[in-house]
Design a protein around this nucleic acid. Sequence first.
RNA 1: GCCGACGUAGCUCAGUGGUAGAGCAACUGAUUCGUAAUCAGUAGGUCGCCGGUUCAACCCCGGCCGUCGGCUCCA
Length: 641
Amino acid sequence: MEAVLPGGAVRAFPRATPLSAIAEAFDPSLAGRAIAAVVDGVEKDIYLPLQQSGRLEFITPESPRALEIYRHTTSHLLANAVKDLFPEVKIGIGPATEEGFFYDFERAEPFTPEDLERIERRMREIKKADHPIRRIEQPKEEALAYFRKLGDNLKVELVAEKGGAVVSCYRQGNFMDFCTGPHLPSTGAIGAFKLLTVAGAYWKGSEKNQQLQRIYGTAFPTEDQLQEHLRLLDEAKKRDHRKLGPALDLFSVEETAGPGLIFWHPNGTIVRQILEDFWKEEHRRRGYQLVTTPHIARDELWRQSGHLDFYKENMYTFEIEEAGYVIKPMNCPGHSLIYKSRLRSYRELPIRYAELGTVYRYERSGVLHGMMRVRGFTQDDAHIYCTRDQIVDEIKGVLDLVITFLKTFGYDRYEIDLSVRDPAHLEKYAGDDTGWRMAEDALTQALESRHLSYIRREGEAVFYGPKIDVRMFDAIGRPWQGPTVQFDFNLPQRLGIQYVAPDRSQTPVVMVHRAIYGSLERFVGGLVEHYAGAFPVWLAPVQAVVLPITDRTLDYAREIQDLLRAAGLRCDLDVRNEKIGAKIRDAQIKKVPFMLVAGDREAQSRTVSVRSRREGDLGPMGLEAIRDRIAQMDGGRVLGP
RNA sequence: GCCGACGUAGCUCAGUGGUAGAGCAACUGAUUCGUAAUCAGUAGGUCGCCGGUUCAACCCCGGCCGUCGGCUCCA
């Protein structure tokens, strides 16, 4: 029997040699370090024997796959501990996740933070006991009988639904769970872990089912990695826009006015307006026409568009003089009315209508989240109306726009999803087959012509058309919902959006929805976290602050402020009777990019001592020089310090 | 909406049934100072809201509102 490693190394072994022994034979440094193996592409527990010749690969704690195995095994450890402490609890599912792991439990009493501590202590005891973790393959009936006897009805349901005639379970000490594996070879092999929170979660993710208690935790091979992860969580907390936003006086949410409604303060409004101006400029340049549509409209429009059927529970409606009205939850019907206000010829296509349109949507209270998920928000919405042979160019144009924006804001890592129909259920989609194929081809072609890699997601398209979604990653690597481009085969049909073709026939138009920011609220919230509140000069609400050392230089300081203001820069002046250290500290906390210290020396030489919020003291500079430097960073949309 | 936790001064947080506290911020005064907090004083609270228990409630109980962590849903 032969084992082949990825490097090509080959060795012979007696039949049924344990994988761990093979690992050690190949490379003594792997002894006790290999946590699992991949045999001919299938993951196996490390203590299992090799039954026939094959290609082998070993998973060590450093392997990318290792994390998931550690976490999954830790989730079993969690369930094991919970069962020990609360035998009456029924266990649900317990997978590894991106950030750690969880396990769902059914229990009448809620788990308290004290329970979590007890559970964690028990987990450590079981880890210390170092029980071997062993895979058991048994007839489905036996596994069912086992969980039935324990009264673990959730598990019984799972085993019954999944698995073939023979199912695999993993046993450690007195605890056994239904699982495909692989797992670490023993509880002692488990690394560093920590339980984090408990939350409600519906059984099998459906609101119709009972709600279970989900205990979240995270786990890593080493304590250092765990600590680093906790540090990152802490860093994310410091960047939280819900904390920084009000602290930097950007926005607030007012209980009196209602949840999910954003009040943009002067500082936030500066950032917002810069985004709006930049957006308008880029759109006009690319042949978009700006439009403005009303915030309310008769319900008839929404009946025609279909929203009253499929979007009703998200819409605010009211009645005036016996007529029903809707507060707009979307801009597309309005734009389409402008299109339809007269006959359109193929000669005027494509038509691109763009609007920073404020919409209101009822969102369930539990989903609201700072500026990210709100009930009133402004979409940077545009709709492209074109013919079928224009769509590839149009999509290319949108992608170019998207890339420009991502670059400008410093989102240099992103992923693209192409969501297409579920080939198994073509009947649930609006529009004709040729249209869908053309649209999908157009999206693909455009992506490829721009050399953008993407992930094709079958069945992820919405019912009215295929789409491209961009996921952008912020400065600390977290993903954010970014730009989106969607075809719509439904609305043109429902609203009769057509153009007169060269043969004089009325032809349905192709409609594309697209947004770059998504919503100004969400985008600005994202920027706050991306920059940790330290906006680049071009976006900073205050770009520079003049700090006089004493009242003697107050007039000189005013002069500097005026000079910068005259250049169109946003410059504050700290007139408080404070020591320079205190003024600097406060400017640092407000994350002002430049501090301009003006004391007697500077007044004498008509200079300022420049301090950068990131680089500290830069020494004295001439007034015009610093003004020009800041103006250059402003105009050039420089991202640096 | 559902499960759980939380809600005390502008902010961060003490306060376990007997008249509500600190630091920072604010205000006033003194100080005029060189790269992340000068000193002193003053003011600031129907303890989220409503109801109940009690001689007495920030504290115990119930309802509601809001926030947070999730689920579900989404720009």
